[in-house]
């Protein structure tokens, strides 16, 4: 199993207790300001109905635990290769299980929990959409891989030569894998370096993060996504 305990020691110098059930992580950690909830996946999990349900239950338990008290932040640890690919999972309606998980995450936000996602390992398309990508703030840790599809597969499907994609990917963040690309597009709020104090960074992120979706604005400011905010505004303000 991919060991996240080194990560948790860095994040939570004041202590942590995170259990691992299959690839699902659930527990608490203390970065110095008191306990926060920890929910996530490890081992590049391919998210199936079982994992989606376990994650959703963990989020609902965090919300239930804090009923009647100040809601504590929830730290999502995202490490997923995407959704499970199987006929059985499709028949069950895996997309509906992901939608349920997304609703649980949104409920937590509405109940006042700050949601911080840490990508440690991989974050890939569907498995990322259902929960990590719904955080109020999203951080990529060193070595994190974020993508929809690698360039080779993309070249095959779009029938655009790989060389052309690779060439364009040097300047455009819009399709090629990479945490930096997502940062430029505003989809990742921060990239933490190995030498950073992650506990302190997590504390300040929890204190500063709001609940508005700022990603399109960040993408505009950082120059990696120039149309998302502008077009949405045009639609909102159209006569």
């Amino acid at each position: 199993m991919d060991d996240k305990s080194a990560l948790f020691r860095r994040l939570f110098p004041a202590g942590h207790d995170v259990a691992c059930q299959g690839p699902v992580l659930q527990g608490w950690g203390d970065a110095g300001d008191g306990r926060m909830h920890v929910v996530g996946t490890t081992d590049h999990a391919a998210i199936d109905t079982r994992i989606a349900l376990d994650l959703a239950r963990a989020v609902l338990e965090a919300v239930a635990q804090d009923a009647g008290r100040a809601p504590r932040p929830i730290v999502f640890v995202a490490d997923t290769q995407g959704q499970a690919l199987s006929r059985h999972e499709e028949l069950l309606g895996l997309n509906g299980y992901f939608a349920h998980l997304a609703r649980c995450v949104h409920l937590a936000r509405q109940q006042g929990h700050r949601l911080v996602t840490l990508i440690d390992g991989e974050a890939v398309s569907g498995g990322f959409l259902a929960f990590g990508l719904l955080g109020d703030a999203i951080v990529a840790l060193p070595g994190a891989e974020v993508r929809v599809m690698d360039l080779r597969a993309m070249a095959r499907i779009t029938r655009i030569p790989l060389e052309r994609l690779a060439e364009l990917a040097r300047t455009s963040p819009v399709f090629a894998p990479g945490a930096e690309n997502y940062w430029r597009m505003g989809g990742i709020h921060a990239l933490w370096a190995p030498q950073d104090d992650w506990g302190a960074a997590l504390r300040s992120l929890c204190a500063e993060t709001g609940t508005e979706d700022q990603r399109a604005r960040l993408g505009t400011e950082r120059g990696g996504r120039r149309l998302a905010l502008a077009i949405a505004r045009q639609v909102r303000d159209a006569a």
Binding site: L133, T158, V174, F175, Y182, G219, A228
Partner: peptide
């Protein structure tokens, strides 16, 4: 896929 990263973020923004 031609703008996969932008598309993924857009769907997340649509969800919110």
């Amino acid at each position: 896929l031609h703008e996969a990263n932008a598309g993924l973020l857009a769907i997340s923004e649509i969800m919110r």
